[in-house]
Design a protein around this nucleic acid. Structure first.
Lengths: 127, 127
DNA sequence: CGGCAAGTTTGATGGCTGTCAAACTATGAT
DNA sequence: ATCATAGTTTGACAGCCATCAAACTTGCCG
């Protein structure tokens, strides 16, 4: 099976602001978003620069997908990720753009300054 | 003392995207934001339509204030609230606008659909 | 002065969620 | 087949945070 492994994606009508904001409040997920926004092509899960374990990364991708922010599909053993930019923009105009812009402006310096919240044990940082 | 009771507000330079998003991810706080955005005048704490106790409301106002989203000042025993719209917009252009717009569009129907997260015990709703 | 009104503080509680390691599945290559 | 690669699942754990009630502070008014 190749296609059967493709996880479910929400319809445009089922995307909620609450879920989108919950997804975007996490610095790691916002990092995924900005990396996708800055890239020309789709990025495989392992191709991101993230400071968390792969299992945690899987969790974050799932949250982003279920919020309707990214689309995932398989190519071999790799899972590729696309930003659903235009789609989300049709539901919440300007939202993604303003957040990506905000992250790029002041957020760049505070990527390590996370301050995230929740358990931050270990903080391997710099990977 | 009258002025001494005025709580501290962050400078523009100290406003972080992380803190702003953490503030805006809560439905109650987003409700405060939209009510302020829709109002012509400043609103006192007790003047909001919120489904939480006053002590919880105080907490939410504090979070919004510390994130730099609102400004508070005393008039008698009442604490008035102003949206720091233009200021925040100078730091994160379009962010508040897109969220307020998103809330007004689809969010209106999902105000009770919270799904928020965190403890939701009781859910008095409709107040 | 005495009481009321408006909020704040404090303390406790419960639930959600970010994190990891370890075990597992599936695809591709040797 | 066998191994390596890519990622997912499961289970456990810790920390944060939204929530409330009760006690307190401050200012207004009669």
């Amino acid at each position: 099976m190749n296609d059967a492994r493709i996880p479910p994606h929400p319809e445009l009508a089922d995307i909620s602001l609450q879920q989108v904001l919950e997804a975007l409040v996490d610095p790691v997920r916002r990092s995924i978003l900005t990396q996708l926004a800055a890239a020309d092509d789709d990025i495989k899960c392992g191709g991101f620069d993230l400071a968390v374990s792969t299992s945690t990364a899987t969790h974050h991708f799932k949250v982003l997908r279920e919020a309707g922010l990214i689309r995932q599909y398989y190519v071999g053993t790799s899972r590729l990720n696309t930003l659903r930019r235009d789609e989300v923009d049709r539901v919440f105009p300007g939202l993604i753009e303003s957040i990506v812009a905000a992250e790029g402006q002041r957020g760049a310096a505070s990527l390590a300054t996370t301050r995230s919240g929740r358990s931050a044990k270990r903080t391997p940082s710099v990977a």
